[in-house]
Design a protein around this nucleic acid. Structure first.
Lengths: 336, 336
DNA sequence: ACTCTTTCTGGGAACGTTTGCGGGAACGTT
DNA sequence: AACGTTCCCGCAAACGTTCCCAGAAAGAGT
C-alpha cells in the first residue's frame, strides 16, 4: 500500500515540493497555471496529505477527544451523535473512550488523549469522580476542554449543562400540585452537580410549598438502573411508611424503581407516582408511560462540540469560566 | 503548553537522543544504569512521546476507525462499548463516525479515515448502501478492515455477523408452533445480508412447515422505527385481511408496528402477535413485553475488534475471507 | 542602460521520532 | 604486544510536511 507524497508529485512535474505544497493550499505566490497543473496531477495520483507529518509540523491535530461514562446509555449515545455531527461538518475527527464509571480509567483515558495531542477534550465525569482537579490541571496547561452534563460543583472551566435545579423543581412542584404528600427522592451522587442540583431543586420545591423536608424520604445513590433498584429497596427500609410519589434523579433509576413497584403489585400512579429525568425514549413506551424531565441530549452534544471548536480556534473570543445552561422541560405522562 | 521531547531529556542528561530513545524502549544496547537514569528523568519531566512523530516514522498509527449508521441505536452503542473496551486494553485509540444511513457520507467518512492513516477499519453498512465495492477496494489496497453486522451478500473480506437466517427461522417457527396462521414479515433492505437472510429464514420456515409463502404478507422497508410504522400501514393496505402475527426484521421496526397496533385498539398477542430482532432492552419493559431474537451486541463489538487487531498485527495468521458467525437466541415473551 | 518592483519558484531547515552504522573503551585471548 | 569481542553510545539520515529566506526572471520606471 503506497501513499503518494508531495515529493512524488513534485518529481513527476519537475518542480519543488515547496511549490506543490503551496499550490495545494492555494497560496497566492503560485502561478495559476502551475497551481491547476499540480491540483490535477494530485487528483490523478490520488494524493492524500499525510496527517502525521502535517500535525507534527503544525503541532496540532484536527482530532477532538470525548470521554463518557458509558456509550450504551441512550443519553450519552445521543450526545455523541450531536458531537460527531458537528465535528464532521467542521472537518474534525472524534476519538472516543468510556470510563465505565471508573475514576482511574477516566484519568488514564484523559492522559492517553493528551498524549495523542488531541486538539481539545470533551468530558462527562464518571459517577465515582469526586473532584475536578485533574480536569482543572489540564485547563491550566492550556488544553482546550469543555465539560458537559456531569460536572463538579464549582468547576473552573467551561461547561455545558442543563438547568438541573429548575427541572427538579418543576418536577417536584408538579407532584405537589397533583396532591401527592409523601414525595420521596432517589438522589444521585452529591459530588456531581447533577446529583446535587436535582436534590436541591427537589428540597426547595418542598420547602417553598410549606412542606417539611424529610430525610427519611431521600436515598442517595448512583445514576443507573441497578441504583434505582437498590435505592427503592433502601427507601422501603428506612421510611416508616410508603411514599406516594418518587422523583428519581435519572430515568434509569426511575426504571429500577418502576420494576420493583410493579413486582410488589402496586399501581402506578395510584399507589406510587413516578417521575424521572432525561427523557429516555423507553419511558414513552412503557405502560404507564413515565413522566420525566426532558434534557436536549443531541443539542447538548452540539453545543459542547461547537463551544470546544470555538475554544480551539478562537480562544480569545470565549469566556474561560462560563457555563452554558440549556433548558429542561417537564413532560407529564401517566405515571404521575 | 510545552511538551518535553527526547532532546530535552538528552540535553539534561548530557547524552544523545538516540540513547534516550533506546533506553525508553528497553533496547539491550543501553547500560542498565543509564536506562534507569533516563527512565527516571523522563518520569520527572513528564515525558509523553509525540505520537505524530512516532507514527510518521513508523508509518502507522495505533488508531482504529469505526463507522456505524447511527450511534444512538442501542445495538450499535453496545457494540461500540465492546469495541472501545478491547481497543483500550490493547493500547489502541478509536475514531468514531456515523454515516446516518447515508451512502455518500459513509464513503466520505471512510476516505477521511484512510487519509488519517488509521491502522484498521471497522464498519457496518448504512441501509442505503447497495454494494460493497468501496470496501473491497480498500481491502485490495491492503487496509485491514472488518465488517460487522450489516454486510453485503457475498462480501469478499472478513466479517463478523450473527446467524440471521437461523434466528429468523426460529422466530417464525415459534410463531407457527403457537398456532398463528397468517404470519406477516416486515422485511429489511435486501441488499444487506441481515435483510436478506432474515427474510430467507422467515420464508423457509413457512415452507418447511408446509405453508405457502404469501407475498402479500411481506413488506420490504428499512430498519428503523419509522420504517416499522410505514411498513405496518402498507401491510394493511396490501393484504386482504389482517395478519395474526408479524415477524419484524428489527426491534425498532417491531416497536413502530407495536404502537400502530395499540392505537388501533388491537390486543397483543391476542389479535396480532409480534416478534422482533436484536433484543433492545426496551422490549423487556413494555407491556406486553416483546418477544425477540437476541444478538450478543457487546460480543459482536469485542470479536470484531479482536479480529481487526489480529488482522493488523498478525496478518498472516488470519483467513482473509472468513466470516465469523455468532449465535442468536430466541427470547419468548408475552407478545407472542 | 540602469535600478526597482513584482511575480514566481527553489533550497533547506525544522517538527520529534527511530534506527542503521560506525566507533571508542574495556576486556580477554593468543 | 597485537588482535578480536563485547558493551555502550553517538552521528546522521529519514519519515512527509510547512514555511522562511533567497533568488531568478520579467516587466516597469527613470
Amino acid at each position: 500500500m503506497h501513499h503518494t507524497t508531495l515529493k512524488d508529485i513534485a518529481a513527476k512535474l519537475g518542480v519543488s515540493t515547496s511549490t506543490v505544497s503551496r499550490a495545494l493550499q492555494g497560496h497566492p505566490d503560485i502561478h495559476p497555471e502551475t497551481r491547476e497543473l499540480v491540483l490535477k496531477t494530485a487528483r490523478e495520483m490520488n494524493y492524500q496529505p499525510n496527517a502525521f507529518a502535517q500535525n507534527l509540523k503544525k503541532k496540532r491535530s484536527n482530532t477532538i477527544g470525548v470521554i463518557v461514562p458509558q456509550v450504551k446509555h441512550f443519553f450519552f449515545a445521543e450526545i455523541m451523535a450531536g458531537i460527531t455531527d458537528v465535528a464532521y461538518r467542521a472537518g474534525y475527527n472524534v476519538f472516543i473512550s468510556q470510563s465505565n464509571e471508573d475514576y482511574q480509567r477516566e484519568v488514564i483515558n484523559l492522559q492517553a488523549m493528551v498524549a495523542q495531542r488531541v486538539a481539545g477534550l470533551l468530558t462527562s465525569l464518571s459517577s465515582s469522580t469526586t473532584s475536578c482537579s485533574h480536569l482543572e490541571a489540564l485547563v491550566q496547561r492550556g488544553v482546550p476542554l469543555v465539560c458537559f452534563d456531569r460536572v463538579c460543583e464549582g468547576f473552573k472551566g467551561v461547561s455545558v449543562i442543563v438547568d438541573d435545579y429548575d427541572g427538579a423543581f418543576q418536577a417536584t412542584q408538579h407532584l405537589i400540585n397533583r396532591g401527592y404528600r409523601r414525595i420521596a427522592h432517589l438522589a444521585g451522587p452529591q459530588n456531581l452537580s447533577i446529583g446535587h442540583q436535582r436534590f436541591a431543586g427537589y428540597r426547595d420545591a418542598l420547602v417553598k410549598s410549606g412542606r417539611p423536608y424529610d430525610p427519611s424520604l431521600v436515598v442517595f445513590g448512583g445514576l443507573n438502573e441497578e441504583d434505582g433498584d437498590a435505592g427503592f429497596k433502601q427507601l422501603l427500609k428506612q421510611s416508616p411508611q410508603l411514599p406516594d410519589a418518587i422523583f428519581c434523579v435519572t430515568d434509569p433509576v426511575a426504571l429500577g424503581a418502576y420494576q420493583n413497584i410493579k413486582q410488589m403489585g402496586l399501581k402506578i400512579p395510584q399507589d406510587i407516582a413516578l417521575v424521572g429525568f432525561s427523557d429516555n425514549p423507553i419511558g414513552a413506551l412503557i405502560d404507564p408511560p413515565l413522566s420525566t424531565v426532558r434534557q436536549p441530549a443531541y443539542e447538548i452534544g452540539e453545543t459542547a462540540a461547537k463551544t470546544l471548536l470555538d475554544l480551539i480556534e478562537h480562544p480569545e473570543s470565549i469566556e474561560k469560566n462560563q457555563t452554558i445552561v440549556l433548558k429542561t422541560t417537564l413532560i407529564v405522562r401517566q405515571s404521575s
